[in-house]
Design a protein around this nucleic acid. Structure first.
Lengths: 210, 210
DNA sequence: TGTACATCAGTGAACGCGCGTTCACTGATGTAC
DNA sequence: TGTACATCAGTGAACGCGCGTTCACTGATGTAC
């Protein structure tokens, strides 16, 4: 008989493969975040139960709940940034690149709304629950590098004469806020008649870059 | 000796004044939401403790935790809408009215960030914690009426020749997303150099209305 | 004017639950000699 | 080749906590007669 489904007890990892559990815990945590729409209700016990492991096993890989949340958000942001940059690099010409970044941004927010809202939501996401031992997100706030990517793309666009003059930073801010607003409002208030992602991304570029 | 500070036991309301506690509970809940940055961690026990009352007293006014959260959000939205409309009515001319609405929108989000994020965040805010008995936000999603106010202001602006032609609904969507993006991103990612509220509100109007 | 009674604005103890985290333990597997 | 031992990947029970909600009660105050 083949191995039965998830309900059977999980086999422990082979010697030297202990690190595998770390990724499995992050996967389980991400599933729960998707289901719950946020990180506030995420619990060690729920994560370890989903991974088929005792609560204590989590402490082999994370110092506490805050460290788990931080790792989850950091991993999510890496995926986000990679997706946006890949989309940019597949497009032709500075203006098309910017619009591709906007589309990819909105697509990620649609596909992973809970993760998106944690990445670009209030800082210190673990602290929502209890401060005890939670690692604050100090230094570079998550999301900053992607903003810099956008500024760079705006500069390239201006250099090619495909965007109005003006402070690239200010234009990038306007575009970022417009994208973020759509990303967080569209599915929370869907009854209002939203444009498609690509059309909106082009409209945002037109509004801020001319 | 005058009445001592909050630590002394609360006197119960006089006969016929039982409804006063309802507002006091909502006030306490709002304080906690401000402190915690959201509604997810709001507990009956914390609210009643702050109001100086036993947990059971809350059930005299609210069916359960979800009903409390719903009442809090509904009251907050009324305040929000009233503030935006008051600002609109104090301005001169259709274009200035729209810009005043935008400024008031951003000012409310700055002054009451937690309340703002609950009003315009994911629906069914009480459901974050546990579904048991929570009243879902059915029918008109909160925030809808303010969006209609904005559409109306755009129409007035077009009628006065102070906005480009086009579907007023689509223009209002663009402005709303831009305002919401600023409102939720500015204080969460403050290190990036944001414009002032009034300047941003004008820029948004310029971007979408021409 | 006196008193029984209904009403009102709450209180108090207890329930079962899930939580993060602690301390101590287990049992398979590889390695040194 | 055999065996003692260290290491690794976990487990199990228990702690004290805050939670929503239940059931039953209290004591002051107004009202009917």
């Amino acid at each position: 008989m083949p191995s039965s489904p998830a309900s059977e007890p999980r086999a422990r990892n082979a010697r030297g493969q202990g690190e595998l559990l770390r990724e499995q815990l992050l996967d389980a945590a991400q599933e729960l975040v998707d289901e719950q729409g946020g990180v506030a209700q995420l619990s060690i016990r729920a994560v370890t139960k989903r991974a088929g492991v005792s609560p204590m096993a989590l402490y082999l890989h994370f110092a506490d709940r805050g460290a788990l949340v931080y790792a989850l958000v950091a991993r999510g942001f890496s995926e986000f940034r990679a997706a946006v940059l890949a989309s940019r690099d597949a497009a032709d010409g500075p203006r098309a690149r910017i619009e591709a970044m906007g589309s990819a941004y909105l697509a990620f927010a649609r596909e992973q709304p809970a993760l998106y809202s944690v990445i670009f939501g209030p800082l210190n996401p673990g602290g929502d629950r209890k401060e005890a031992g939670d690692k604050p997100l100090t230094g570079e706030p998550i999301g900053r590098e992607s903003f810099e990517d956008l500024v760079e793309a705006v500069v390239a666009c201006q250099a090619a004469g495909q965007a109005r003059a003006g402070d690239a930073h200010d234009l990038a801010i306007g575009m970022w806020a417009a994208l973020h607003g759509y990303a967080t409002l569209r599915y929370a208030r869907s009854g209002v008649g939203w444009p498609e992602e690509e059309a909106y991304a082009r409209a945002v570029a037109a509004a801020w870059l001319g």
